[in-house]
Design a binder for these strands. Structure first.
Length: 852
RNA sequence: GCCCGAGUGGCGGAACGGCAGACGCAGCGGACUCAAAAUCCGCCGGGGGCAACCCCGUGCGAGUUCGAAUCUCGCCUCGGGCACCA
């Protein structure tokens, strides 16, 4: 704040470069002159330059944030100089468990704490010189914002895309909250590392699984999405599409006569459905396994086995997710006593219960094929169940796999001492009429056969689960629902939004699993919107990922309180032209944002269904080769560096230390390089102002200048900022070596520097006599003719080894170059006494003589 | 285990299949200075040679090619993601 309003007086003589003064001056001027505020209603060439908004922590912006924002800002400024009307907004993702935990620790309400953090963030964001349009700053904690977050919930509810269900959820006993599956890492809480338990609670879910196929298909649609490969790959994996078959195994008589069967399954004809991706191995299914939670377990269990089965189920239920999912994975299980009939063989096979089968995937039941599945094999070994081979190696010499040595003893009758899981090159065996079919064909053939028998069908499954948005916490937007004894869950009427989060003293959660909000009667009890009788508010708040799933829609429309996003503004500015952010959000934020956009599109609120046309993931900044962390004590506090070197030098250093999309290693010593460079440019510019006109410039310098323009432009477009900076340094080195002092060149240099060092460039620009901002200037164009010298050095190789170089005219023909090469002593030495058998000539580059 | 990404000087990193190491940091030598800092000039992968030059060199091993850091196959190491997903 003080930085910006600090009065400065910079004489126009060429004294040393003082970043503090220059930066304060231009930050103040940008604000005064509204330089960074495009006309949102009538832009000529709109360009929406978005970066992932920060969570305003107490520590302030760290180097990683600075790196990301600088890289994104650079791109926006570059586009601006190319003539676009660039809208570059910023905001704060300020709800959520991070803020809340910190507030609990300090015992201060986050509603008081967070604004302080935001204040600090705003100061830092201004200090690094981002091209932000501050008119459109937003915070997700602002009731004017979350009113519309709640509105989105209601739209989904109305459309049947939101529903409530009782579900076993991940419960973190330390944070005292449920966690989404994706917030559980190796069975532990993503945030605090505590072992996660299971609890059963009523939760609100969004039906994202209904969109799985669209979310997947668009990833391959270049017209909608130009995204970093690493990000689309992560989403593909997360969606987890698998093609398989749902097969039906009739329960056999033994089971149906069991006392509980009639009740559980309405008498005879009941079947066990399984999902498999290896329908081809059905002849090898020698037993079945149910998840402990599977509803048919009761019906199948015989009286003799009941005690054992019940005990096993109880044990499984009390197990936390760690030992269930990432424990030592020693297989456990019990026999139910029941049997089912293998629809392929017609044989009865036993049904077991084991916790390696998960209720949440597929049908919660599997056909176990121990011969060709590692888990089933292990289980069969342990419990002495039969193992049958139904896939064998194609015989040696057969087409495709004539490799007799690689796998010994995988013939049709060879015993299996390990599962044979090759699902590409094997052929079926011991599978009646399917014997000899290659596995891929057999998958189709067997599925079709079972389908014709009415025992199954091909299906596609996704790994993705519905999105649980309920959080039993305080610091989030209340879910706008009122419960009425007569009318159930009633949505809060839209006219009553927002449901404001009350400022309460005791905001910390407790063990009950009930939100702190429930303890406040004056807030909790409200009239039912339908009948007016006393109702109770939903006390859960929504997931922060819902806040961030639509913020890009809000930015252009922040001034409107009667609509979440203005239709005209939205049509003008969206979808986002360029979005830059970290790949840690590849599957959470980015997938949810896509989903919400799709739903709003389908409901007629948006004219597009993919929110971000282009997305690029930036890299990570490390220090001394290791991730920065408090525990390592290698955290770089950006403020200190900015205070010492200036924002421009800091920006340039961050962009210089590695390719933006890969990140780099922050080294204290390295920052002096960019600063020295700026000092050189500074004196060059000041000198050029004084005496730099009418001077004759060497042709080589003109070529260098054109090469530089090309390299800088291409580097910026590809986000390879480090190479752009290197090109600019080369140019300045060349200008100094040649003693050039030309104002025209200085101006083009300054414009090219502007995205990297905006304050510095503005100051230079002004000193060169311009009254407008440098960002009103045009990006320099280059002449392709002048990118290559008139005389070229052609490399001459003999047998592929470089032996010499010859000077020839540009585009010289092969004969000329060969003649020149033959005159060259360095070449002669390797050619004499030998015949040139072959010549390879690459124009303007290289001549290779093959001799022998 | 599966899926991505990456391995190049002392360090960060450059190189449409065509001079490996641009640019920068650090280091070394010199100029300026009473001295230091700053600045300027020069050197800076390894080995051999007085020298012009020569040989070796991009994680390892094969291959394709006139020519491979770059393409293909097989490994190794590191980073990231997913993971009892049937």
């Amino acid at each position: 704040m003080t930085d910006i309003s600090k009065p400065t007086a910079i004489p126009s003589t060429d004294e040393a470069y003082h970043p503090d003064a220059v930066e304060a001056k231009w930050q103040a001027r940008w604000a005064e002159r509204h330089i960074n505020e495009p006309d949102l209603d009538h832009p000529a060439r709109p360009f929406y330059n978005l970066m992932m908004f920060p969570y305003p922590s107490a520590e302030g912006l760290h180097v990683g944030n600075m790196f990301a924002f600088t890289g994104a800002d650079l791109y926006g400024r570059f586009k601006r100089l190319q003539g676009y009307d660039v809208f570059e907004p910023i905001g704060y993702d300020a709800f959520g468990i991070h803020s809340e935990n910190y507030a609990i620790k300090l015992g201060i309400n986050p509603a008081i704490l967070i604004p302080r953090n935001i204040e600090n963030f705003r100061r830092q964001l201004k200090r690094i010189g981002g091209m932000f349009d501050w008119r459109h700053e937003l915070s997700t904690t602002d009731p004017r914002y979350y009113k519309w977050t709640q509105w989105i919930f209601l739209q989904l509810l109305k459309a049947g895309k939101a529903y409530k269900k009782t579900a076993a959820v991940n419960w973190c006993p330390k944070d005292k909250t449920v966690l989404a599956n994706e917030q559980v890492i190796d069975g532990r809480c993503e945030r605090c590392g505590t072992v996660v338990e299971q609890r059963t609670l009523e939760q609100w879910f969004f039906r994202i699984t209904e969109y799985a196929d669209r979310l997947l298909a668009d990833l391959d649609d270049q017209s909608k999405m130009d995204w970093s490969d690493s990000t689309t790959t992560a989403q593909r994996n997360w969606l987890g599409r698998s093609e398989g078959a749902e097969l039906e195994f009739p329960l056999s008589v033994g089971a149906e006569t069991a006392p509980s069967a009639a009740r559980g399954q309405r008498g005879s004809g009941s079947v066990l459905k399984v999902y498999t991706t290896r329908a081809d191995t059905v002849f090898g299914a020698t037993f079945m396994v149910l998840a402990p939670e599977h509803p048919l377990v009761d019906a199948l269990t015989t009286p003799e086995q009941r005690a054992e089965v019940e005990a096993y189920r109880r044990a499984a239920a009390s197990k936390d997710l760690v030992s269930r999912k990432v424990g030592d994975r020693e297989k456990t299980g019990v026999f139910t006593g029941g049997h089912a009939v293998n629809p392929a063989t017609g044989r009865e096979i036993p049904v077991w219960v084991a916790d390696y089968v998960l209720m949440e995937y597929g049908t919660g039941a599997i056909m176990a094929v121990p011969g060709h599945d590692e888990r089933d094999f292990e289980f069969a070994r342990k419990f002495g169940l039969p193992i049958v081979r139904v896939v064998a190696e194609a015989p040696a010499g057969a087409e495709g796999h004539p490799d007799p040595e690689r796998r010994e003893g995988e013939g049709a009758d060879a015993p299996l001492d390990a599962p044979y899981t090759d699902n590409e090159s094997g052929i079926l065996a011991n599978s009646a009429r399917f014997d000899g079919l290659p596995v891929p064909e057999a998958k189709r053939a067997v599925t079709a056969w079972l389908e014709s028998k009415g025992a199954g069908k091909g299906v596609v499954r996704y790994r993705l689960h519905d999105w649980c948005i309920s959080r039993q916490r305080y610091w989030g937007p209340p879910i706008p629902i009122i419960y009425c004894d007569d009318h159930g869950a009633v949505p809060v009427p839209e006219k009553d939004l927002p449901v404001e989060l009350p400022l309460i003293e005791d905001f910390a959660p407790d063990d009950s699993g009930i939100s702190p909000l429930a303890r406040h009667e004056e807030w909790y009890y409200v009239p039912c919107p339908v009948c007016g009788k006393r109702g109770r508010r939903e006390t859960d708040v929504s997931d922060t990922f819902l806040d961030s799933a639509w913020y890009h829609l809000r930015y252009p429309s922040t001034e409107f309180d009667d609509r979440p996003f203005d239709p005209a503004r939205t049509r003008t500015w969206l979808p986002v032209h360029s979005y830059i952010g970290g790949n840690e959000h590849a599957v959470l934020h980015l997938l949810y944002a896509r989903f919400i956009t799709m739903v709003l599109h389908d409901l007629g609120h948006l004219p597009f269904d993919e929110p971000y046309r282009k997305f690029r993931a930036h890299g990570l900044i490390v220090k001394d080769g290791a991730k920065m962390s408090k525990s390592r004590g290698n955290v770089v506090v950006p403020d200190e560096y900015i205070a010492r070197w200036g924002a421009d030098t800091f920006r340039m250093y961050l962009m210089f230390l590695g390719p933006f999309q890969e990140g780099g290693d922050f080294q204290d010593s390295g920052i002096s390089g960019p600063r020295r460079f700026l000092d050189k440019v500074w004196s060059f510019v000041n000198e050029a102002c004084r005496e730099g006109e009418g001077q004759e410039v060497h042709h080589g310098v003109i070529v260098k200048l054109n090469q530089t323009k090309k390299r800088v432009t291409e580097g910026l477009e590809a986000l390879r900022y480090n190479t752009s900076i290197a090109a600019l340094m080369e140019l300045v080195n060349a200008l100094r070596a040649e003693n050039v002092c030309d104002k025209g060149i200085a101006e083009e240099l300054v414009v090219m520097l502007a995205p990297f060092v905006p304050h510095f460039a503005e100051e230079c620009w002004e000193r060169m006599g311009h009254r407008e901002s440098v960002f009103e200037a045009r990006w320099p164009a280059w002449d392709e003719e002048l990118v290559v010298e008139d005389r070229i050095e052609v490399v001459v190789q003999v047998n592929g080894k470089t032996r010499s170089k010859v000077q020839v005219a540009r585009d010289a023909d092969e004969e000329t170059v060969v003649a020149a090469a033959m005159r060259d002593v360095g070449v002669q030495r390797f050619v004499e006494q030998k015949t040139v058998r072959k010549r390879i000539y690459v124009a303007n580059r290289l001549l290779n003589l093959v001799v022998g």
